[in-house]
Each structure stands twice: as structure tokens, then as C-alpha cells.
């Protein structure tokens, strides 16, 4: 298998969620090498880590994000694809640590205080990470203080606030205000089922996205 074939195959494994050889999903790829084995092989073959990242993993996750936006795939396929991407990404960790591969930036994300819903936030985190960003996931029910501490430790990061309940949009507004008061130049994006573009403007957010792929586009535009 040459480099191009290997990266294409690796991208397919991520796109269709073939984690490793032992994984039963997808049934059509049963018994074949998965993202884990192929990424390891790519590194062993001396393929540049940036090529593995850009020409296989990011490419595949872009397709996954687009298909999700177009409702051609659903949450389960996206979660399985992200798992395959993580399996491949594990082989690139040393190159991130050495600085040979650089992230596009750091994204701090969390579901706001009073809200425990995390799937939307998790999907955004996975797709953003798959798009080449370092993601710091603060979890759910995150207070303004916790966001601010993380921003202090990562001053160039972009922050994402998520809320699922209309009643916790107030919490989002309060947290956004507290963050902006202390870090007026911070870039802050918001999302979640009840959140709208108008609401994001009302609370002074830098931007809003209704889906994970839109969040990637927005983030990329903010560092372009």
C-alpha cells in the first residue's frame, strides 16, 4: 500500500467508524484493519504526521461533520467516527508534544451552570478536535469561575458555552457577562438547541453555530 492509498484507507476508517481490526462496526468492514492499525502503520512508514492529520483525519472528520449537518448520518455514526479518529490520533500524540504537529488553536468548551446536558457539547468537542484544535472540555454544570480559571491558564483560547434548556440560557448570559467583564478581548462562541444568533448577539458573544461543523467553520474563521 503506498502513502496515498494508506491515507485514503485511513480516512475511510475514520469516516465510517472502523476503530480497529477487532471492532464489529461497520459490518461491511469486519475483519479489516481499522484506524488504529492504519495510523500506526502510517507513522511506521514515515509518513509526515501533518499529512496523516490533514490528509486523512481532518479530511474524514470534515466529511463526517458535513454529513451530520446534512442529516445524512446521525449521532451514533458521529460518535463512532470520533472514536476511530481518537484511536488514530493516539499515534500522533508524541508529535503534538514535540511541536512537530501544531494545533489550530485551543478551544475551551463547557455546558453552563445549572445544565447537565452534554451530548451537543460533546459532539462539538469531538468535531472541533477532529478539525485540528486542542479541546479542553470542562464538562457540564460549569460555573463562571471555572471558565475564568481555565481562560487564565489558556489566555489565547476561544471559549464555547453550551446550554440545552431555555431556563439555563439565563445562566449562559450571566456566565458570558462575567467572562467578558474579566477578559474583554476573549472570543466567545455559543450554541445549544434553544440558542439563536439573535441571543448570541444579545449577550455579546463573538459568534453562534447551530451545529458542530458550523462551529468548526466559525472557529477557523476566528483564527484565519
Amino acid at each position: 500500500m503506498n502513502t496515498e492509498e494508506l491515507l485514503t484507507k485511513l480516512a475511510e476508517c475514520v469516516e465510517f467508524g472502523k476503530v480497529n481490526k477487532a471492532a464489529p462496526f461497520p459490518p461491511a468492514m469486519k475483519g479489516q484493519d481499522g484506524a488504529d492499525e492504519l495510523a500506526k502503520l502510517a507513522v511506521e512508514m514515515g509518513i509526515k504526521p501533518t499529512d496523516i492529520l490533514n490528509e486523512a483525519l481532518i479530511l474524514a472528520m470534515d466529511k463526517v461533520g458535513d454529513k451530520f449537518t446534512q442529516k445524512k448520518i446521525f449521532v451514533p455514526q458521529m460518535l463512532i467516527a470520533a472514536k476511530a479518529m481518537n484511536a488514530a490520533m493516539a499515534h500522533l500524540v508524541p508529535f503534538f508534544k514535540s511541536g512537530e504537529v501544531k494545533r489550530k488553536g485551543t478551544f475551551i468548551i463547557g455546558t453552563v451552570a445549572g445544565d447537565l446536558h452534554d451530548i451537543g457539547k460533546n459532539l462539538v468537542a469531538m468535531i472541533v478536535e477532529g478539525a485540528g484544535w486542542e479541546v479542553i472540555d470542562l464538562g457540564v454544570d460549569v460555573s463562571a469561575a471555572k471558565f475564568k480559571k481555565c481562560i487564565q491558564d489558556n489566555p489565547t483560547a476561544i471559549v464555547g458555552l453550551s446550554a440545552l434548556l431555555t431556563t439555563t440560557m439565563q445562566s449562559m448570559q450571566k456566565i458570558a457577562a462575567e467572562i467578558k467583564a474579566e477578559f474583554p478581548d476573549i472570543k466567545l462562541i455559543v450554541g445549544g438547541a434553544p440558542v439563536t444568533d439573535d441571543f448570541s448577539k444579545e449577550i455579546g458573544a463573538t459568534g453562534y453555530s447551530s451545529d458542530p461543523q458550523g462551529a468548526v467553520t466559525l472557529l477557523n474563521s476566528l483564527v484565519a
Binding site: 449521532v75 460518535l79 472514536k83 451530548i119
Partner: peptide
């Protein structure tokens, strides 16, 4: 464990 589908 990274099994986000099962976990979700």
C-alpha cells in the same frame, strides 16, 4: 474508556 456511543 472512549466508548462514547455506549456511554451516551
Amino acid at each position: 474508556k472512549g466508548n462514547s456511543l455506549e456511554g451516551y
